[in-house]
Simulated scan of single mutants.
Amino acid sequence: MMDTQALYRRREAEFLKEIRPYLHYALQSLSIAAGIGFLVFMIGYRQFLQWVTPEFPWQLTATVCMMLVLGGGRIRTYLQQADTLFLLPQEPAMAIYLQTAMRRARIIGSILVAVGWLIVWPMYHKLAPSSGWLFLLLLLVWLVFKQVLLFGKWTEQQLLEQRTRYLFIVLRWLLCAGPTYTVFNLGPGYGAGILAVGSLAYLGILRLPRQYKVHWNLLIDWELRHKASIYRILNLFIDVPELRGKARNIRWLNKIVNFIPFQRKSTYKYLFTLVWLRSELFGMTCRFTVIGILLMIAFDNKILAAVLYAILAIFSAVQLADLLRYYREHLWQHIYPLSPHLRKQSLRVVRLTLHLCMLVLIIIPAFWTLSAPLWAAIMLIIAACGSMIYHRFK
């Protein structure tokens, strides 16, 4: 019988070996920025702890931070297309392989939860004074809760119907948000009780829908997406072999390009807009914008809001810089009777337009949450000017 546990470890090592050359250059480019970012975060967080008062919506802030580490995370299986032919007949033996994948996900998830709780604890300890024993007790609660959510995520990937899968994804995030907020808002006693009851009910609900024993095709598809996301991150620092993503043609979204004039000079604007709409970059942009809006709602301090808005503006600009990758090697761009300069200029215009729209949507809550709307307007103007400079020379 095949040693599937050794197979998993070998595939994991092969993947790390595959990305190691690109990871080396990425770390070289990122190390200084990461060190500076960490230092700025530590200084800013210390200042935040000195400033924050119980009137600040710290429960919501702590909930968002813990949600990211509790509900997030990936289960890497390293499955390949050929596995449906060669390994599917050995599905009983593959149980050990998949258990190894889950065990790795649990270990990594537990580490992230511990790091997240270490970050949230100083704020929680100041605004809800407690002993060190409560830190350990709640850490244990978070770790157990993480295992429940990971089991739910694994179950989601085995469901037969896509619509049911989406419903259970929403349910998992609601379970992650609700009980987590009650722990901070109602106290650890009531909150942990509600969290335990909710977890037991959730585990019972997971048994109701129809599901595969192992949903091979979906797991392989998710693995391809995971690899593609890693390559997209590395591609920000160095050119790497591209993994083809799925093009999605959502008809009602295509109406957005109707505002682009039907002219020769607008050809690439039309094409790059469609590329954005039909690639996974569209979903990433929408999710980032929604997260940015929610974060801006939670902050009513002018300085903190300005720092947060600057971070969001920078990361959204870097995210949109990946738009060129989706059309870089396309044959037709060399056949069109159009100049390469027009292509570069159109790309800058599309990226700038998208970035400005994101900046406007993210800043809208600040006009109500901040006591000085003029401050929000100044933030938007500065960010817009920075965006124009960035996209002009990027």
Score class of each variant (00 low, 15 high):
326 Y>G: 10
339 S>F: 00
337 P>R: 04
339 S>E: 05
369 T>F: 13
303 I>D: 12
345 Q>I: 11
370 L>S: 15
307 V>W: 13
313 A>Q: 08
316 S>K: 15
352 L>M: 03
363 I>D: 03
353 T>G: 02
323 L>S: 02
327 Y>C: 08
346 S>H: 01
308 L>C: 05
303 I>Y: 15
356 L>N: 04
322 D>C: 11
331 L>Q: 14
339 S>V: 03
319 Q>Y: 14
323 L>K: 02
357 C>D: 09
350 V>Q: 00
310 A>L: 10
325 R>E: 10
341 H>A: 12
354 L>D: 02
348 R>V: 09
339 S>I: 01
370 L>Q: 13
356 L>P: 04
347 L>W: 00
327 Y>K: 01
304 L>V: 09
353 T>Q: 02
357 C>Y: 14
311 I>V: 10
365 P>A: 00
368 W>D: 11
318 V>F: 11
362 I>M: 04
354 L>Q: 06
342 L>G: 07
325 R>T: 11
300 D>I: 11
330 H>P: 06
340 P>R: 06
351 R>C: 07
372 A>L: 12
325 R>V: 10
349 V>G: 01
310 A>G: 09
315 F>Y: 14
347 L>N: 01
329 E>L: 13
349 V>Y: 00
335 I>K: 13
333 Q>F: 15
357 C>Q: 15
358 M>T: 07
352 L>H: 00
301 N>E: 15
335 I>N: 13
339 S>Q: 05
364 I>D: 06
301 N>Y: 12
320 L>T: 11
375 W>F: 12
338 L>A: 12
355 H>T: 01
303 I>Q: 15
373 P>G: 13
343 R>V: 07
326 Y>A: 06
375 W>P: 05
306 A>P: 09
309 Y>G: 03
300 D>T: 10
360 V>H: 14
322 D>N: 12
371 S>C: 04
362 I>Y: 05
337 P>M: 01
333 Q>K: 14
375 W>V: 03
359 L>E: 09
367 F>N: 02
346 S>P: 00
315 F>P: 05
333 Q>V: 14
371 S>E: 12
301 N>A: 04
331 L>M: 14
336 Y>D: 13
330 H>Y: 07
342 L>T: 07
312 L>W: 01
302 K>P: 13
312 L>D: 04
368 W>L: 07
344 K>Y: 08
336 Y>S: 14
316 S>H: 14
